[in-house]
Design a protein around this nucleic acid. Structure first.
Length: 588
RNA sequence: CGGGGUGUAGCUCAGCCUGGCAGAGCGCUGCGUUUGGGACGCAGAAGCCCUCGGUUCAAAUCCGAGCACCCCGACCA
């Protein structure tokens, strides 16, 4: 139940005194439903690309989300701290992320010319802080968390509050003695996350994820499925496997292997794409080997190196898997100059007969399939019946293919053979088994029981608070407006007084209820404006407080007030003397 | 960072093609009539037509450059 008395100083508001206004029309650039409704209902206002103000009611929702998160973190042994937003760039040099995260870092210089960054995340600060105060195994395990503004210079903010440059995040960091301890911390955070999303009434799918630039192994994302999301995920229709597309594993469509045949060079004029090749030779895409050339930029410096990727023609390359394999920060398709520098013939590239020093990476599909058609590294010619190992070898054989809708699940066991279904979603939370990446570079050591030095192992856990706001609206609305989940609603009760200015009895009664509701420990938004009933009802629906009660001349005559739930079509009349009890019951 | 689009009143937009007084609806102010689902009448206030430059007797309108914002993609702890 909402413990509103200590949650807010201001737990009631008269709309005649409120700041902000509802809008009949949403701004043209609001595309997603949540963006439109949050703006129309007067919860948020955009200042610039990916930068928003919270208006009073929006702020209340945000605080409610934070209260839910604090409660779950605290009961999961989390300890709240608050770390600085503005940070010396020196600690970002130590972790090398001044370089690797340069694209999203807001940088600035102070008066004396020292460079500072605005924190996009806080691994550096927390590890520095932890090192200072934790010296003994007795100081472990610990889970520290904060709710703090993060700043990221995103190249493309989008979707209202979904991807912004300034946002609020709950980030938590665990420190443990060993892997076993990390498991305990990690699992307790996963449990807390499920509790949090339940309380916020946001349906969540947890998926295996790529751990990205933050490093470490093992991570999962908490995804809210919605078409307006920007993440692509694959979910098995038979087992419980679900993964981000960047990470998703699948079984490649089978090809019957035949005996290796002799290589033959055939004439294929103006056939530079797989589609053209398939048309010309009347074969299937899976009978071809596709060559894709990239220049890769390593994580740690700017010197790029070439990579030659070979994958079966019916599959596409997963660039995230590829980047992880070669430890690259960025990969870009080779330019024509690069191609000629490495003696590669565009459109007819082949791993056979490569003359230059170049790292060749083959997807596992290549080794599972025989007699493939590949380029001849000569304009106008292809080679048929090429076979891996007999004709060429790669430096690496790996899973570098991207999973797509309908692929066979790699995790299904036994007779089940599930298909992966593709969906879009918003990443609401992300948990990582971080490992010793940061405790190593910041030289965090503690003494164990035997007096030996030990490097703690970390986990980190984030939740996007503004995104919860958006997702809650995406998940709970109708054509008239928002329908807030009970625990997120800016107020418990929407009190509507009809003819407030004209009927003094209404004004008296409504004001009396306004006070009684507060005395009962509930929060209330009181529509005491001199507006037509239609306007008041429309606004109430738009704002989306779950419980509405109406005071009117008509109801007064019957000695009742009218109660309507936002998610119900009908209203009911309640005797005045019973209403407070009913409201308390409903607000639980 | 590549591709596309949009900048005119607080909001939604018309006007631009074909240069000639700055417009509408909503919102806002005042008065009146209404009063159970964004009601109506009358009277008002409100603009650096994104910015800078050019063409022209004359530019919201044509030309050039820049900036901002949105969408798709790339990227995204």
């Amino acid at each position: 139940m909402l413990n509103t008395q200590d949650a807010f100083i201001l737990s009631a508001m008269r709309m005649s005194k409120q700041f902000g206004r509802t809008l009949r029309e949403a701004p043209a650039d609001a595309e997603t439903i949540s963006h439109q409704l949050l703006v129309r209902a007067g919860f948020i206002d955009q200042l610039s690309a990916g930068v928003y103000s919270y208006l009073p009611s929006g702020l209340k929702v945000k605080k409610n989300i934070e209260r839910i998160i604090r409660k779950e973190m605290d009961t999961s042994n989390g300890i709240e701290v608050l770390l600085p937003t503005i940070q010396p760039s020196a600690i970002w040099e130590i972790s090398e992320r001044l370089f690797t995260m340069q694209d999203v870092l807001f940088k600035l210089e102070d008066k004396r010319g020292r460079t500072m960054v605005l924190g996009p995340t806080h691994e550096e600060v927390i590890t520095t802080l932890f090192s200072k105060f934790a010296n003994s195994y007795r100081d472990l395990p610990r889970i520290l968390y904060q709710i703090q503004t993060k700043l990221r210079d995103e190249t493309r903010p989008r979707g209202g509050l979904v991807r912004v440059r300034e946002f609020t995040m709950k980030d938590a960091y665990s420190f443990d003695l060993d892997e076993k301890g990390l498991d305990v911390s990690y699992n307790s955070m996963v449990d807390a996350y499920h509790q949090i999303f339940n309380a916020c009434e946001i349906p969540i799918v947890s998926v295996e994820a790529d751990s990205g630039a933050i490093g470490g192994k093992g991570s999962q994302e908490f995804i809210f499925l919605t078409n307006s999301g920007e993440d692509t995920i694959l979910i098995c229709d038979q087992c419980d496997y679900a993964a981000n597309q960047e990470k998703a594993e699948f079984i490649r469509p089978k090809k019957t292997t035949s005996q290796p045949l002799d290589i033959e060079k055939i004439k294929t004029p103006e056939t530079t794409t797989i589609d053209q090749l398939v048309n010309l030779l009347k074969i299937d895409k899976s009978d071809t080997a596709k060559a894709v050339l990239y220049m890769a930029t390593p994580r740690t410096d700017d010197t790029s190196f070439p990579i030659f990727v070979v994958i079966r023609g019916d599959l596409e390359i997963n660039e995230v898997k590829l980047m992880n394999l070669v430890d690259a920060r960025e990969i870009t398709p080779m330019s024509d100059e690069d191609l000629s520098r490495y003696n590669i013939v565009s459109g007819y590239a082949s791993p056979i007969g490569i003359t230059s020093e170049i790292r060749i990476i083959a997807d596992i599909s290549i080794t599972e399939t025989s007699n493939l058609v590949s380029g001849a590294n000569e304009v106008g010619y292809h080679l048929t019946n090429t076979n891996y190992s007999r004709d060429w070898v790669a430096s690496d054989i790996a899973d570098i293919a991207i999973a797509d809708d309908g692929n066979t699940c790699a995790k299904c066991t036994g007779h089940k053979e599930g298909n992966l279904k593709i969906s879009r979603g918003i990443e609401m939370g992300h948990v990582f088994r971080l490992g010793k990446t940061y405790t190593s570079v910041f030289e965090t050591t503690i003494l164990d029981q035997s007096g030996k030095q030990l490097t703690p192992i970390m986990g980190c856990y984030g939740i996007g608070i503004d995104r919860i706001l958006s997702a809650a609206v995406e998940a709970h609305h109708d054509q008239d407006g928002i329908i807030w989940p009970k625990q997120l609603s800016p107020y418990n009760i929407h009190l509507t007084a009809l003819n407030f200015e004209q009927d003094s009895t209404v004004a008296e009664e409504a004001t009396k209820f306004y006070e009684k509701i507060q005395d009962a420990g509930l929060t209330v938004l009181f529509d005491d404006r001199d507006e037509n009933p239609g306007v008041k009802f429309k606004d109430a629906d738009l704002i989306g407080i779950p419980i509405r009660i109406t005071i009117s001349s008509r109801n007064n005559a019957e000695n009742v007030v009218e109660l309507k739930l936002r998610n119900s079509e009908t209203s009911e009349k309640i005797k005045k003397e019973n209403i407070i009890e009913v409201l308390q019951q409903l607000s639980k």
